[in-house]
Write a protein that binds this DNA or RNA. Structure first.
Lengths: 201, 201
DNA sequence: ACTCCAAGTTGACACTGTCAACATAGGTCA
DNA sequence: TGACCTATGTTGACAGTGTCAACTTGGAGT
């Protein structure tokens, strides 16, 4: 048996604890020393498993993308492509609302250099492809420069709007802007309406 | 004359230096000690003018919003409302491209509590109102739940998309996603197309 | 049994924000 | 004029951070 028997669960414990911190108080207050302290190990123990703070960051970002993808794929079934796209949009917003700090971790935090963390990169790309593939199977309203159909570009449009709404709603800029409570509640569905109008043939 | 003669230009110097740091290396590397060091004053000098790091942060965010508003208002004139909206969109993206780190400072950075920094809040709101007022004077394609016209909501839609594209384009998630160089160049205009399709009657 | 290395330890360094105590120069007011 | 007072600046300290270096140790592989 070449299975290393215990292969130190400290590593997993670090990741778990890091997640707990991020979900409670946001990524900026994540510190390796704090992780170590909570685990009751020395402040250097985590460094035996992660070369630097960026590496543990990349790990939890990668795992978050994975969770996010799974969440998107578990959306309620819809037969019509348009309804399915909307269902995905709803699910997207639901995730952002359920896990605001993890959402921010993935999309509003300066990432460690992607080139150095291929896993993180791969998982992020996978999530984006879910959206792109959904659009690739729809017939869309042609744009002015009609010639080329590009699900990439339209996926980018949809994603941008969803991401925009999600981050605007949870950012403090928003509270600042003086929208009424009603507006806030209607914001999401209005944006869905507009996206539909933009895409439907 | 009750005009305080010199009213210490250290305060202004701090702000200027803080801006320099933010534009060069991003807000997360902004430290008051560094500011002090560059100015050749003691590490506590800035604290005589700003109670905390958050306060100088709020100040440069407020000023950035001001600059941003001015930039939007200086867009090339267009008579037709639709063309003017597009012009504003172009200007928005131009700002984000010219000052990526200041853009991030305003829109992708956890802000100090807005309630405690009314200037910052006011300036942010002012910028948003430029967009909202532009939309208020357009006749838009009605949405399904037609009854109410709400420039607020549609401004939010447009802003979300613009903000989404801007931050997606400059975020490292994007580089990760594997869009071709062509796609990148066409992304912005495609999104403008889609916005038009969504809004035009 | 011997070796070797992964994993954990303690200690140090430079950096951060912030509090406290002290210095001083200039303007206000008796 | 002289006393005082406040705005501004200084030095020094403390706890927190990431990370490097050196040391210890338990256990797997030869």
């Amino acid at each position: 048996m070449t299975i290393r028997p215990k292969r130190s669960d400290v590593r997993e414990a670090c990741v778990a604890e890091a997640f707990r911190i991020v979900e409670e108080t946001g990524v900026e207050s994540l510190s390796l020393r704090d992780v170590a302290r909570r685990l009751g190990v020395s402040h250097q123990a985590p460094y035996k498993h992660f070369p630097s703070r960026d590496h543990i960051l990349a790990e939890i970002i990668a795992r978050s993308f994975d969770e996010f993808s799974t969440f998107l794929e578990r959306r309620p079934d819809e037969k019509e492509p348009e309804a399915d796209l909307r269902s995905m949009g709803v699910q997207y917003m639901r995730y952002a609302q359920l896990h605001p700090l993890k959402y921010r971790l993935m999309f509003n935090t300066p990432m460690p250099d992607p080139a150095k963390h291929p896993d993180m990169m791969r998982n992020a790309q996978y999530a984006f492809n879910i959206l792109r593939d959904r659009l690739a199977h729809m017939t869309l309203r042609p744009t002015r420069d009609a010639a080329e159909v590009s699900p990439q570009l339209d996926a980018l449009f949809v994603w941008s709007t969803l991401h925009g709404v999600a981050s605007v709603l949870q950012s403090s800029v928003f509270q600042t802007i003086g929208l009424s409570e009603d507006d806030r509640n209607n914001a999401v569905s209005r944006c869905f309406e507009r996206i539909s109008l933009a895409l439907e043939p």
